[in-house]
Write a protein that binds this DNA or RNA. Structure first.
Length: 848
RNA sequence: GGGCGGUUAGCUCAGUUGGAAGAGCACCUGCUUUACACGCAGGGGGUCACUGGUUCGAGCCCAGUACCGCCCA
């Protein structure tokens, strides 16, 4: 090591992420390690497509978690020698982005309608150029080893061509069609939105009872509704066919109050006999269920609410132009005037809202483009059933299949300006669907754009150059795995599987891991609007990227978890620990002539740490491959803190300071393998330490990932050292109990040659053929009386200890005295209990 | 309304096929031990939500109850 480097290492007693991370990252970028050649086949290569963050986005904790998981796997595979691509990109995020830019314009006093479509989309592009880059920087801060040179955007030219081809192809296959259908109309964004973008919330409304007179009779049918303002669009009243009260009315008519229209009384199973009076007004134009009933019975579909959220002319002169809320008040007033309002009561029910705009959804019938899903779903169901796509944890497989089995048509058109314009042109009665504008004059393109998820659905292959037959596709499709939040399992994952099979000829990934949701510290959802979000960049500033990555992986789980600051701190502690342990090793060893780890180390502790190292490598690798990141992080932590630092380094210190060449080989080799093992989780600190390592011949990011050498794992060595450690702890515990200051060396009678040397040293006991009064026996060694011993404390503690052991002995004796236990339990369990009993009795004897 | 998940130490979470409950943090007691106080050593702390059942034995399996959360309608 050069003097300057040595000096720096000597002086730096902490890992300082802030000063180092950017430099380390720049080194990786310079090396071009994240930008693989498109060579080889997808089978031999490793690839991952990042869930594209929204361009509107600021990196949030979900991205950070997802990125930490994917990067761990990507780095591990890259180090394992695979040609590895992790593709980065951004989603144009139709509604979200349009909303952001509209808000901006609004603050300048401009509406998008004033400047027009072209100027507006221009503004969005400008905005994208300005802010889109920040996502990239944020991923770099996290240390994500994505291919920054292959970045894609779901609205770039090549991608747009792929989208048009998909749409056209689906149309030609007959899956895409245009229809008047009930959609979730979002008055906020002035667009239809899909079922999946609707959130239901509990609301308390008034349930009104309205009397509908039956034609040619004195009878009235009382119907209950929370939406009296839609009654002008009623076209029937329905009762349950089993409902005897109304059996004779089926087929006759009643009269719609305020309007005077004759409404047929129909029978339909959907009607709940118990609810209200058992008679349901049917409004096919403004209610999803009523729409279904209406289609079943061939009812007329009337709209009294327009796309602007105001009452139309069909609602009648008195209500035309009113907002829905105003109309409700006025309709109730009118019903009172007519004397047909027979009841009002509070009613709690769930009401649909737009996830994006937050406004109450208005179910409307409108002309939209739809995609029929059954044919696309069938092979995607098969792929998951037969395991070509593996979804874990297992319960999500069921959720996926259940949703796919009941899949409904997908409304793919959106009344927005920002997005992929639907590739359909109209001229008079003619309709043309194609990838480019048709020949001839007078063609006008459809005004709508496609649902953002329509373009996200083809992400894994569109990013690789589909529909062209590119080297990238050949080398990296299908990808290997996907981590995702469960909320987009349907919106995104399912659709990628469908389009992947249909268009790219294979499933888009082999493994889907549905990760947990990290909640805010208080258990609420992390959300910008609630102000509960925790900024990952702030956490990185404070603790370093490695700490955040470790923390997120350590707190991740299959169930939702609260954000845990202590876990991030644990990550920071681990980084510091690695740093300092490395200082001890690197500053006190000479670069050995033989850089290999000795095959047959002489020292017991050397064989022990190498055994622990190799089994940790095996365990951590397996856990990461199983996506059990939390336990992988835990294993790393306890290996470094406990095995390596608390025990091995302490045991080996005298030899280290003596310059023992064999211990140097063990230490430097162990450090090399430990750094490489930890690198996928904590890339920065490991790379920084590697810079000081004498074996370094390039960046750690492309160093080979350790493969566990199982021949070094020795159960007998681990047991032997494990027992010696337990013994050391016993001696230390006894000392502490006896109130002996750490500086005082205790004297004990015994044969020191029966135990490893370090026991007495670390236990701070002088074991030998001493003479004197034995006051206690600890693990077979007689502690000699001395002035430092607090005999009162000792006697008190011995009494407590004895009580505990005796209780335990009684418990086990009871168990072994139970004939049923002895007869039925497996022999080894019984033997274990007997062994335990023996040990406790021995311990009791020792206490004297 | 249907489905899924959760309830374990003060907090956040682990807990393999049923053999007697763990981690990190917090807490208490020591320690300026020349890698690290973001450290070291030692220690206390749990009727595993509740009620039944199966079993020699249940945090784990079965049935039910309560509360919390999520998804779908």
């Amino acid at each position: 090591m050069e003097d300057a480097a040595r000096k720096k290492l000597e002086e730096t007693t902490r890992w300082e992420p802030g000063e180092t991370e950017a430099r380390i990252f720049a080194g990786w970028m310079e090396g071009g390690y994240f930008h693989p050649e498109a060579t080889g086949t997808a089978d031999e290569n490793y690839s991952v497509a990042i869930p594209p963050p929204n361009v509107t986005g600021v990196l949030h904790m979900g991205h950070a978690l997802n990125g930490s998981m994917q990067d761990a796997l990507v780095r591990m595979n890259r180090m394992s020698g695979k040609n590895t691509l992790w593709i980065l990109g951004m989603d144009h995020a139709g509604i979200a982005t349009q909303t952001v830019v509209e808000k901006r314009l609004k603050s300048e006093g401009i509406s998008r309608h004033e400047i027009g479509r072209e100027a507006f989309t221009e503004r969005v592009w400008e905005w994208k150029e300005e802010f889109g880059g920040s996502i990239r920087e944020q991923y770099q801060r996290l240390g994500a080893s994505v291919d920054y040179e292959r970045e894609r955007f779901t609205l770039d030219d090549g991608y747009a061509r792929a989208v048009r081809k998909i749409f056209t192809s689906l149309y030609e296959k007959g899956y895409i069609y245009r229809d008047h259908y009930m959609v979730n109309w979002d008055p906020g964004s002035q667009s239809a939105i899909s079922d999946l973008e609707v959130v239901n919330e509990e609301r308390t409304d008034t349930l009104y009872s309205v009397d509908y007179p039956v034609e040619g009779s004195d009878q009235v049918l009382t119907v209950a509704t929370v939406r009296p303002e839609t009654m002008m669009a009623d076209t029937a009243v329905a009762v349950n066919p089993e409902d005897e009260r109304y059996a004779d009315l089926i087929g006759s008519h009643c009269i719609l109050p305020l309007v005077g229209r004759r409404l047929l009384i129909i029978a339909d199973d959907h009607v709940d006999i118990e609810f209200g009076t058992g008679a349901l007004k049917i409004t096919p134009g403004h209610d999803v269920n009523d729409f279904e009933i209406g289609r079943r019975h061939g009812l007329e579909e009337i709209s009294v609410i327009g796309e602007d959220g105001r009452m139309t002319a069909m609602a009648g002169k008195r209500f035309e132009g009113m907002t829905v809320a105003e109309a409700q008040v006025e309709v109730v007033k009118a019903l009172k005037e007519e004397g047909v309002l027979s009841g009002e009561e509070e009613y709690v029910h769930s009401v649909p809202f737009s996830e994006r705009s937050g406004e109450r959804i208005e179910p409307l019938i409108s002309l939209q483009w739809f995609c029929r899903m059954e044919e696309l779903a069938a092979p995607a169901i098969e792929a998951v059933k037969d395991g070509r796509v593996n979804i874990s944890p297992g319960q999500w497989k069921g959720v996926y299949l259940d949703w796919m089995d009941n899949i409904r048509p997908w409304c793919v058109s959106r009344q927005l300006w920002w997005g992929h314009r639907i590739p359909v042109w109209y001229r008079g009665d003619e309709t043309y669907v194609g990838e480019t504008k048709p020949e001839g004059e007078g063609w006008i393109q459809d005004e709508d754009v496609l649902d953002t998820w329509f373009s996200s659905a083809i992400w894994p292959f569109a990013t690789l150059g589909w529909p062209d037959d590119t080297a990238e596709l050949k080398a990296f499709y299908p990808t290997d795995f996907l981590t995702t939040a469960r909320e987009i399992l349907f919106l995104w994952v399912a659709r990628m599987i469908m389009t992947g099979i249909e268009f790219a000829g294979d499933v888009p990934f082999k493994d889907v891991y549905v990760h947990s949701v990290i909640q805010a510290r208080d258990g609420r959802r992390m959300s910008k609007s609630l102000g509960t979000g925790i900024d990952p960049l702030g956490e990185i500033d404070e603790h370093g990227a490695d700490a955040l990555r470790f923390g997120l992986l350590a707190m991740s789980s299959t169930q939702d978890v609260r954000y845990s600051d202590p876990k991030v701190q644990q990550g920071r502690d681990l980084a510091t620990k690695l740093w300092n342990a490395s200082r001890l090793i690197l500053l006190n060893t000479e670069d050995p002539a033989d850089r290999t780890i000795p095959d047959q180390p002489i020292a017991l502790e050397d064989r022990w740490i190498l055994s622990r190292l190799e089994s940790t490598i095996a365990t951590v690798t397996r856990l990461i491959n199983e996506y059990d990141f939390a336990h992988a992080a835990q294993e790393l932590y306890s290996f470094v803190f406990s095995d390596l630092c608390d025990w091995y380094l302490e045991i080996a210190k005298p030899r280290i300071y003596d310059g023992d060449p064999e211990v140097a080989r063990v230490l430097l080799g162990t450090l090399e393998r430990t750094l490489a093992l930890a690198h996928p989780v904590m890339p920065f600190v490991t790379e920084a330490i590697w810079e000081y390592h004498p074996y370094r011949d390039g960046h750690l990011v492309v160093h080979s990932f350790p493969r566990s050498e199982s021949e070094r794992i020795s159960q007998s060595v681990e047991t032997e050292v494990g027992e010696a450690i337990a013994l050391t702890r016993k001696l230390r515990g006894w000392r502490d109990m006896a109130g002996v200051p750490p500086k005082i060396l205790l004297q004990a009678k015994g044969d020191a040659s029966t135990i490893p040397e370090f026991v007495a040293r670390l236990g701070r006991v002088d074991i030998g053929a001493h003479k004197g009064e034995v006051v206690a026996t600890v693990a077979g060694f007689g502690i000699l009386a001395s002035d430092e011993l607090d005999m009162n404390a000792i006697n008190e503690r011995i009494a407590v200890r004895r009580g505990k052991i005796e209780a335990e002995i009684r418990k086990i004796e009871g168990k072994l005295g139970n004939q049923k236990f002895v007869d039925n339990a497996p022999a080894e369990v019984v033997a274990e209990e007997r062994e335990k009993l023996e040990q406790l009795r021995r311990e009791l004897d020792e206490l004297g």
